[in-house]
């Protein structure tokens, strides 16, 4: 199935809000840039109704190159996790699709 992209989000803003094409495209770009910048500053992002983007610090752990079998430690890192909000969870749970997405 086709995926929703930035182009479609911009098209929606053009159609529904009457932003011009340039403004709509900029709006979508800035929206995701701002979320990414906030996370890059180690600041959690909370979008009520949709969900929270949280940050977690992972310690170094042992890893292995799956091709060669060689042991290489996976370095300590900070990762983003998404915790869907209640409203989004309820909406998605109701999806009666028969084909789980891969």
């Amino acid at each position: 199935m086709a995926a929703l992209t930035k182009a479609e989000l911009a098209e929606k803003l053009f159609e529904e809000l009457g932003l011009n094409k340039r403004e709509a495209k900029d709006m979508v770009d800035i929206f995701f840039d701002e979320i990414r910048d906030s996370l890059g500053r180690n600041e959690q992002v909370k979008l009520s109704g949709f969900g929270n983007f949280d940050l977690r610090d992972k310690r170094q752990r042992p890893g292995r190159n799956p091709k060669t079998g060689e042991e290489i430690p996976i370095s300590a890192r900070r990762v983003v996790t998404f915790k869907p909000g209640q409203k989004l969870k309820v909406r998605v749970e109701a999806y009666a699709g028969t084909q789980p997405q891969s």
Partner: peptide, 18 residues
């Protein structure tokens, strides 16, 4: 509008790729 459209896509089984 963007957040609602994203929620709507997901709840109809459509992926979002940004």
């Amino acid at each position: 509008t963007m957040l609602d459209y994203m929620s709507q896509s997901l709840s109809s089984g459509e992926r979002i790729e940004i």
